[in-house]
Simulated scan of single mutants.
Amino acid sequence: MKNILVIGGTGFVGRALLAELTRDVVYASRRNCSWGDGLFITVPTRHRERAKALTVLPTVKIIEADVHDPVTLAQLMSGQDAVINLVGVLHSAEGVPYGADFARAHVELPQKIATAARAAGVRRVLQVSALKASPNAPSAYLRSKAAGEAVVQAAGGEWTIFRPSVIFGEGDAFLTRFARLAKVVPFFPLASAHARFQPIWVKDVAATIAESLQRAESIGQIYELGGPQQYTLTELVRYASVTAGHPRQVWPLPEWLAWLQARVMEWLPNPPLTRDNLRSMQVDSVCAANTGLPFQRIATPLEAVAPHYLG
């Protein structure tokens, strides 16, 4: 595993993964191991200028490319040992069985990646999905994630799939959003207030993905990734506001009003809530049997990290 293609590497999880992989490059010799020696990471992006900060990372090559184009994807796959797909979107227009944006990012792209990887002889394919992804899930988001998993598995080869719960860390779009809102709103009228999550630190996700490249036993496995504790959405919103220094009350909304709130918010750019988000929260985003991390890793508690960036 010396040549690695990271698709979606400029995003939230991608930046953490690149830092983890290049950390091994820098410190491999000090740890008396060969991992990282001669490692080369390729990161395609639609806008290279927006990813300039990543160019300082050792052995990382940023290429402006359209990964949805099969010809371009085939060229990117040439000479790679592994491909990691981190691409994901949170919103899409309504559609059956899922909207066009979900179909393009979560189903069609993994299909193209799996096909190109197999044609190029890429050994490993790692796919980041979502906890509770299922073809029978209530939301289009979770159904599309399950469809993406299915096409990767159907292509054969040495695949590994990761299903994280909500991911937190500096720059996240979850706790940080509530912390910022707490500065300007007097209270939180909250939909799906009792939905449960098992938040996982982005660096734990990145470290697990990176280690799986070295673990033969990870081939053909689906890993659920969650932190050490479960929380309701109400608890997380209260925690974010208190930690940010702006404690706010949470007012759980009745179901009919929650759907109305989501319908209105869908008109906003980058909406904080959609009807499909509500459908996703009908299924608690928690691991089976409270499973945390593979490879005997110990997940980092939310309270050990969040105060450093929410404050």
Rank of each mutant, 00 (worst) to 15 (best):
R15H: 06
R15I: 05
L21N: 02
L21Y: 03
T22F: 00
D24Q: 15
V26P: 06
R31P: 01
N32F: 11
S34W: 14
S34C: 14
W35E: 08
D37N: 13
D37L: 14
L39R: 10
I41V: 08
T42W: 00
V43T: 02
P44E: 05
P44M: 01
P44I: 04
T45Q: 05
T45G: 02
R46H: 13
H47G: 10
E49I: 12
E49H: 15
L54M: 05
T55S: 15
P58W: 09
P58L: 06
K61D: 15
E64L: 09
H68P: 00
H68Y: 10
D69Y: 02
D69Q: 05
V71Q: 15
L73E: 03
A74N: 13
A74C: 14
A74R: 09
Q75T: 12
L76M: 09
Q80A: 01
Q80S: 01
Q80E: 07
Q80W: 01
D81E: 06
A82W: 00
V83M: 00
I84T: 07
N85R: 06
N85P: 05
L86E: 08
G88V: 07
L90N: 14
A93D: 10
G95K: 01
G95H: 00
Y98R: 08
G99T: 09
F102E: 01
A103E: 15
A103D: 15
R104H: 11
R104E: 13
A105G: 07
A105D: 08
H106N: 10
H106Q: 13
V107R: 11
V107M: 12
E108F: 06
E108R: 13
Q111Y: 11
A114W: 04
A117E: 09
A119H: 12
A119P: 07
A120Q: 07
A120T: 08
G121Q: 10
G121N: 12
G121P: 11
V122I: 12
R123I: 07
Q127E: 11
Q127K: 09
V128Q: 02
S129M: 02
S129G: 00
S134M: 11
N136P: 02
N136Q: 14
N136H: 14
N136S: 10
S139E: 04
